[in-house]
Structures are given as structure tokens and as C-alpha cells.
Design a protein around this nucleic acid. Structure first.
Lengths: 228, 228
DNA sequence: TAGATTGTTAATCGATTAACAATC
DNA sequence: TAGATTGTTAATCGATTAACAATC
């Protein structure tokens, strides 16, 4: 939490640093709702309307938005365009954050060619692989380099996000190298859970964990069906 | 929470249903630590050791494991193999949960061929696409069907997990169809945040949201560097 | 018995929600 | 002014943690 709620005297970055993770998770959802409204030509939105679009309650919307600043107008609501600007700014202002993909197999190649990352502001700036036969090839305009050069590649390209697209057995090693090279975020597509040092600020998204959780819900549902 | 903590009289499924989401998220991480120990031939582990492997504290490990039942031995620790069995059982017992992939473009094809899903217990049982020119082709042994048949495909294959690999513009439509068809979990790879009805139990993982969060941490880190 | 470690309680912390004064 | 809606407070809820009695 910020020591002060007087955002008028805080820098935008100080505001950003003070956001609870739970709030950060919801901001993109609000953002999408605002985009929808903007496309429809709507210029003002109440917390109640935005809550319905985001699937949360109005109190949460107001609380979340209040951390960004007092950008609403009592009795009226929020200006759609202005709120989009503010959320976009806090979430990283669309400054592209280049990513490095580790593993140029089927998945790695597909992810490299997938324009979704670039569209989300995460252009693929580097690809590495352990197979010397693949090193030197170009994929989607990027030349594959050897995984042993990962540290150097990360420094050269300024990548701060690593995407693991290796086989399960190589995933933890790739993570360790990425961490050593200084990336701050890791998206792990390998079918295994990997661990990162209990460092400050390193954010990891583990597809295997997510799948396990989905599996749990599946299982629970089956159980509910069986017992209820 | 379960009304009772007497797991001896609860069915395994009733135990599973009572787990807090925060605990469910950590179980696969413990599981990986246990796999590591088992590979090294270790047969007993203390909450402290497991905590270090998982990057959490020992109290949390004991609390989490206590929801599964009293499977430890005071003064000794936990049996590695037995604990793996218990966690595996609660998380869904390795029963495969077939998935349907929506979108047979570059990403959809790569995900279809990617054996990581199958390895994690999520075999790809169906693929659908909107392009009639793609319908009928076989990808990794699965024949592509038309997205208009999604409801029927889901019913036929028993898929309960949907993976969105469409362009951003088609993602929300795909989600709506999946929800209508009755899937209970959605993994969205499209570069946009999608919303689902505020239904009971539908679990959604949004890669765009995850990327936004990663972006936030990047941004925050840059801000810290700039101001600190 | 002495040492070790669990399982659980109680305290703390943070996030959610309802309610309402402020105010457009 | 009357109605609407924000921003914030205070209450509630749930998750985390420290501490320790139970017990191997």
C-alpha cells in the first residue's frame, strides 16, 4: 500500500507500484469492457455498468479504480476514454516488452509465428534452442541462437520476459538460465511445474499449474455429479 | 470449507470439494517437489524441506496438507510416495480430461500437435475451425470439424475443457459457444481478454490477462529503476 | 526419555463487501 | 432541489503465519 492516497502528489509510477495484485488482475478485464463501450460510442459508464461487463460487483470496481485516482464524477460516472487511458498507463502504457522464446520445436515455432504476443505488446525479439541444427535458422524474421548464449541474447535484446517452450525435462534448466540472465517474468508452456528462486518481483505463469487447477475443477465437478 | 474436518468420515471427493483455491494452486508445486525427492530415492520429507522446495513456508505446507487428511507422522515427517498418491488423487487422479481446440490456424495446429497437453492429462479430442477449407483435414490424428458443430462435438467427445486459439476478434464468440455447449474450463490463448457468465464453477485462464500482469511487473520494475 | 515434527489454534494480515456521506 | 453515483469507511470474510500442545 502507498503511504498516502493523495495521488495528486504521487508520481504515476508510485501509484502503479502500490496496486494490489488482485486489482492488477482485474484492470485488463475492466479495460476490455471499456473497449467494448467505446466501440459502441458510449462515453460515460457507471461502476454498476462496468461491474456487469467485468463480472464483478460495483463496490469492487469503485475500490479498484480509486487506487488509480479519483477519476469519476459523482452522480455521473466515469469517462470511458479517459479511464481507458489511465488503466493503459498504469498497466504499462503499451510500451512493448520484448520476449525471448526458449525452444524452437513445434510449439516454440508456432509461438514465434503467433502474432498474438506482438499484438499484446510482447514482440518476440529472440529465439534460442539447444539443437545446433536449428541454430541459425530464421523463424518469423528472428534468427535462432544457441541456448548457451541465452545470457548474452537477453542482454543484447533487453528481453525481460522469457517463454519456455522446451520439453518438460529441459524446462527447469531453461528457467534457471533465464533467471540468471536477469529476466523478470516467465511464462512456462512446458508440461511441468518449474520453480523460481524466492526473489523479489519475479512473476511466473505456469501452464502446467493452470492445467492442474482446471483438472481439479473437472474432477470436483465429476465428484459433485457422482455424489449430488 | 467442509462442515467437518473429520476426513475419516468424508469421502475423498468431499475432501476435494472443500479445498481453498489458494491450496489447490500450491498442490502441483508440492507434487513436483515430491517427484524430485522420489527420483533421488528420498522416502520421507518434513514440512520444512518440502517448503524449501516449493518456495513457501513450512506452516503453509502443513496447513495445506492437513486439508487432505492427517497423512504425516509427528517427529518424522511425510512419506513421499504416499503423499504423491494423495495429492494426485485429490487433483483429479490422472483421469484424462479431453480438450477441444477452437481454431486450427498456426497456433491451433501447434497446440494440437503439442504433446504437452496429453502429457499433462489433457488429450486433444477435438479441433474445430470456422474455415470450410480446413474442416475435414486431420491434425495429429484428429479430424477438424466446423465451429458451428461445436455444441455437438463437445457432447460427442465429452470435452469439458476448451482451448481458444482463434484470432482476437473471434475469441469472445468462441467462448460463448463453448459455455453454451457446457464446458467447465477455458484456456484462452487469443490476444484479448474474454468474459464468461458469472456462473458457478467455470474456471477461465486468460493468457492476455497473464501477459497484462507480466507487463505490469515489467512496467513497475522500470519505474522503480527510474525513480529509485 | 529427549528430540523432532506434525496438526491445530489463535493472531494477523489483506481483500471483499455493504453502507453512506460527499457531491455532481 | 432531487436523483444519481462516486470515494471511502467500517465490517466481514478468508488466507497466512507464528506458536505450541500432541505425539511419534
Amino acid at each position: 500500500m502507498a503511504a498516502s492516497k493523495d495521488h495528486g502528489s504521487d508520481t504515476p509510477d508510485a501509484v502503479a507500484a502500490s496496486l494490489a495484485e488482485a486489482t492488477v488482475v482485474r484492470l485488463p478485464v475492466y479495460f476490455r469492457g471499456l473497449v467494448e463501450l467505446a466501440e459502441e460510442g458510449v462515453t460515460t459508464v457507471s461502476s454498476q455498468q462496468l461491474a456487469e461487463l467485468a463480472g464483478v460487483n460495483a463496490a469492487k470496481v469503485r475500490k479498484d479504480l480509486s487506487y488509480l485516482g479519483s477519476y469519476g464524477t459523482r452522480g455521473v460516472g466515469y469517462d470511458v476514454g479517459f479511464l481507458m487511458q489511465q488503466i493503459g498507463r498504469v498497466l504499462g502504457g503499451n510500451e512493448p516488452a520484448p520476449v525471448v522464446i526458449v525452444g524452437a520445436g513445434n510449439l516454440g515455432k508456432a509461438l514465434s509465428r503467433y502474432d498474438g504476443f506482438g499484438a499484446s505488446g510482447f514482440p518476440v525479439a529472440a529465439i534460442v534452442d539447444a539443437d545446433p541444427g536449428v541454430v541459425g535458422r530464421r523463424i518469423a524474421g528472428v534468427t535462432v541462437r544457441h541456448v548457451d548464449d541465452l545470457h548474452r541474447v537477453v542482454k543484447e535484446t533487453g528481453c525481460q520476459v522469457g517463454i519456455i517452450a522446451t520439453p518438460a525435462a529441459a524446462a527447469q534448466g531453461a528457467v534457471d538460465r533465464l533467471v540468471a540472465a536477469g529476466v523478470r517474468s516467465i511464462l512456462n508452456f512446458a508440461p511441468t511445474v518449474v520453480t523460481v528462486p524466492d526473489d523479489v518481483g519475479l512473476r511466473k505463469v505456469d501452464l502446467a499449474t493452470e492445467l492442474h487447477i482446471l483438472g481439479y475443477y473437472e474432477h470436483r465437478r465429476g465428484a459433485a455429479r457422482a455424489t449430488g
